[in-house]
């Protein structure tokens, strides 16, 4: 309910243009990966997805950010049902390894949204992706990996600001990516 209101406001505010250029909306299990510039990003992708698909799509979020403070915790757990992972440290314990956590969520039937740049980017070009996406692809090959390009959202709500301005934004869904068995990590991430 609150999530629907969130999505509605976000759509209204950004006059969101949604383009499905490489695939069609489908309730197949998918991993959407996108460039990351703003807190709006996840909400926008969510808002761009049809309601039925939205329900089973969870974002991957950073535990060190969204797990801190009551308000953020509430949003992450109750409203957007985020899957929280730890960044910036190599976790060896099986239960806390980010890849394992993501695989678990996939095995439960959820689709995922990830931002492989790792954090909100403040530059105009897209940063190099972290390797988690590669490892995830290696482990779960039967899932569609959909690239998503978000435009202008950093201007609506830049990092470090809390009041959004109503600039027109767009979400573009690209064609699903596939991974070759012996593709190298570096090649894939490019």
């Amino acid at each position: 309910m609150i999530a629907d209101i969130f999505c509605f406001i976000a759509k209204l505010l950004s006059g969101l243009t949604i383009r499905w250029s490489g695939c069609k909306p489908d309730d197949k299990q998918r991993v959407y990966f996108a460039n990351h510039t703003s807190h709006m990003d996840f909400v926008m992708i969510w808002a761009a997805l049809p309601k039925e698909i939205r329900k089973k799509t969870q974002p991957i979020a950073a535990k060190d950010y969204w797990g801190c403070g009551r308000f953020r915790k509430y949003i992450a757990n109750k409203i957007i049902h985020a899957v929280l992972i730890k960044r910036n440290q190599i976790v060896c314990r099986h239960s806390e390894n980010p890849i394992n956590i993501m695989c678990e969520a996939l095995d439960k039937g959820s689709s995922l949204i990830i931002f492989p740049e790792g954090t909100r980017n403040t530059h105009e070009t897209i940063k190099n992706f972290q390797s988690g996406l590669y490892h995830l692809c290696k482990r779960r090959k039967d899932i569609e990996y959909i690239p998503v390009y978000l435009e202008n959202l950093s201007r609506i709500l830049p990092k470090g600001e809390f009041l959004p301005i109503p600039i027109l934004g767009s979400v573009t869904f690209g064609a699903p990516l596939t991974i070759n068995n012996n593709e190298l990590k570096a090649d894939f991430l490019n």
Binding site: G15, T122, N152, R155, P158, E161, L163, I165, P166, I167, L168
Partner: peptide, 22 residues
């Protein structure tokens, strides 16, 4: 105005000013 500003490259320093404008 929203169409105009969308097409006009503004930078992060303009954010608060634009909030006032709108």
């Amino acid at each position: 105005l929203r169409e105009f500003i969308t097409l006009t490259p503004t930078n992060r320093g303009d954010h608060r000013a634009l909030f006032w404008v709108f």
